[in-house]
Amino acid sequence: MNELPEQVVTTPAAEELMSRLSSKHGELMFHQSGGCCDGSSPMCYPRGEFLVGDGDVLLATLGETPFYMSGSQFEYWKHTQLILDVVPGRGGCFLWRTGKGCDF
């Protein structure tokens, strides 16, 4: 039987940024909704500022940080491994800003 890979893994850069952000803002969470624009990018929030719904799927817990995806997006990506990384510059207009000159 084929086992599915971990659904979300992080790079060292992502882990370091998550650590810096949680030190400044407290506990974090990620949500990936699908949709247009940057909706397919992971969005990072201070935990509790984004309410997950009954249709959202918990893909992983990265250390202490939950990573959710909308159920409809999960149906397309359920056999995919996501790699959470950091890119220079700013992400799209919907993403909680890291204030560090980079985004997930």
Score class of each variant (00 low, 15 high):
20 R>I: 05
104 F>V: 04
63 G>I: 00
16 E>Q: 09
69 M>C: 10
53 G>R: 09
60 A>S: 13
89 G>W: 10
96 W>R: 10
33 S>G: 15
9 V>K: 06
30 F>D: 01
32 Q>T: 09
70 S>I: 00
8 V>S: 08
69 M>P: 07
93 C>I: 05
94 F>K: 04
64 E>G: 01
32 Q>R: 13
102 C>M: 14
25 H>W: 09
67 F>H: 12
86 V>D: 09
12 P>K: 03
80 T>R: 11
21 L>V: 07
54 D>P: 07
64 E>D: 15
17 L>D: 06
30 F>R: 01
59 L>A: 00
73 Q>G: 01
78 K>P: 01
24 K>S: 10
35 G>V: 02
78 K>R: 12
88 P>K: 13
88 P>E: 10
87 V>R: 15
1 M>R: 08
45 Y>V: 05
10 T>A: 11
76 Y>T: 08
68 Y>R: 01
9 V>S: 01
58 L>S: 02
98 T>R: 05
11 T>E: 10
54 D>C: 00
5 P>Q: 06
13 A>C: 03
63 G>C: 02
54 D>Q: 13
82 L>I: 00
80 T>C: 03
3 E>M: 11
1 M>V: 05
73 Q>T: 05
60 A>G: 01
90 R>T: 12
31 H>Q: 07
103 D>N: 10
67 F>G: 08
46 P>W: 04
17 L>T: 09
14 A>N: 08
102 C>F: 07
29 M>L: 09
93 C>S: 11
30 F>Q: 06
42 P>W: 12
70 S>D: 12
61 T>R: 14
80 T>S: 11
20 R>C: 00
96 W>F: 09
51 L>C: 08
20 R>N: 04
92 G>A: 04
9 V>Y: 01
35 G>R: 06
9 V>E: 10
6 E>G: 00
100 K>S: 13
48 G>C: 08
74 F>R: 04
18 M>L: 15
50 F>Q: 15
43 M>L: 14
19 S>Y: 04
5 P>K: 13
26 G>K: 06
50 F>K: 14
83 I>C: 14
50 F>N: 09
34 G>S: 06
78 K>L: 02
14 A>K: 06
2 N>W: 05
43 M>V: 02
13 A>T: 03
2 N>S: 08
86 V>K: 07
58 L>M: 12
39 G>K: 09
49 E>C: 03
28 L>E: 07
27 E>N: 09
58 L>G: 01
16 E>V: 02
20 R>K: 15
68 Y>I: 07
10 T>K: 00
41 S>G: 03
7 Q>S: 11
37 C>A: 12
69 M>I: 14
13 A>R: 12
78 K>A: 05
43 M>P: 01
92 G>C: 02
65 T>F: 02
82 L>E: 06
57 V>G: 04
54 D>H: 08
88 P>D: 15
28 L>K: 03
61 T>H: 02
